[in-house]
């Protein structure tokens, strides 16, 4: 178990280092330089050279990377030239707001997807299953922005029940003070999440239902309700842990679109602005934080899985 833990942590570390290398290279090798972005398209070559010298951009790439890593290790993610703020500050402000948005949406979609998936599995290849499959595929197939806009159109424009814009406050407290503004973004994210999870739940429940222990449970006369509750649901919850790790990148992606759509000032919107404005430091910073979150999520999911599943926990590791 300890050996597994150590190996898994090392693995996660390697991936994070890899992400810093790849994002760093991407930012520096692709056309569209920082200097031109800051100084404007009409800046002279001399100005560009001076800017590069001042900001250490005239060093060889390897040196620049090592300086970058050195800063990272000291908790310094760089400075956003466009916002004239340190990336740490921007992230400290935006990440908690993301959690307020993504956390409830994620929890809600998992809670709704589990019963849907199990229901589909028990009614497999019957009308209920087919109707739900097509319906959920429909949601999956609708571009995320269209789901958001249609909800906006209905609840904000036609019915006028909810505000069209997400809370604009810079602090989490301020965002939470305006819960009505959070409803539509969270609802959009939830609707986008359900088909992702329920599809997985369905196939996982089908696998479980085909297991011998389910047949045994049925053979000894256990009613369907208890079979589902005690055997199928328990195993389904097990796979939810894997799901959490697997879907994290997708959640950040959906978060980006929803933040853009509802003008919610989280990391997704900040990333979009940074990418289109050539704000390298902020782009790198957000990419790194997201990647670390994904790696950490996967790590925790794996560990939880090992902890929860006695077949894996008790097996002798190679």
């Amino acid at each position: 178990m300890t050996a597994y833990l150590v190996r898994r942590l090392l693995h996660a570390l390697v991936v994070v280092v890899g992400v810093t290398i790849i994002t760093f290279l991407l930012e520096h090798l692709l056309p569209g330089t920082l200097a031109r972005g800051i100084l404007g398209p009409h800046s002279s070559t001399a100005q560009v050279a001076e800017f590069n010298r001042q900001n250490g951009l005239d060093h060889p790439l390897v040196v620049q990377y090592l300086i970058y890593v050195d800063h990272l290790v000291h908790g310094n993610l760089g400075r956003s030239f466009r916002l004239n703020e340190s990336v740490d500050t921007v992230l400290a402000q935006d990440v908690p707001k993301d959690l307020v948005l993504v956390g409830p949406a994620f929890a809600l979609s998992v809670l709704l997807a589990i019963p849907i998936g199990v229901l589909q599995a028990t009614r497999r290849s019957k009308a209920t299953d087919h109707v739900l499959t097509v319906l959920l595929f429909g949601f999956y197939a609708t571009p995320s922005f269209a789901v958001g806009v249609l909800l906006l159109e209905l609840f904000a424009d036609k019915l006028n029940w909810l505000p069209a814009e997400a809370p604009q406050s810079t602090t989490v407290g301020g965002v939470l003070a305006d819960p009505a503004g959070l409803v539509l973004p969270i609802l959009t994210l939830t609707l986008l999440g359900i088909p992702l999870f329920s599809r997985y739940m369905r196939s996982s429940a089908i696998d479980t239902l085909a297991q011998d222990f389910v047949r045994t449970a049925r053979a000894k006369g256990l009613p369907q309700r208890l079979v589902l509750l005690r055997h199928v649901l328990r195993n389904a919850l097990l796979s939810v842990t894997t799901l959490v790790g697997m879907t994290l990148p997708g959640i950040f992606t959906a978060g980006l679109v929803v933040e853009y759509l509802f003008n919610y000032p989280g990391t997704g919107l900040a990333y979009y602005d940074a990418a289109t404005g050539h704000d390298y430091a902020l782009e790198l910073g957000i990419t790194l934080v997201v990647a670390v979150a994904v790696v950490a999520g996967n790590l925790m999911a794996d560990l939880a899985y090992v902890g929860l599943d006695p077949r894996i926990r008790l097996a002798e590791p190679k």
Partner: peptide
């Protein structure tokens, strides 16, 4: 495989937006 893990750790859309902006 580690290379795949690295690329998978960054959400696809983030990469695409970045490249699309260039």
């Amino acid at each position: 495989m580690r290379l795949i893990d690295v690329v998978l750790a960054v959400p696809t859309l983030f990469f695409i937006i970045f490249i699309g902006s260039v």
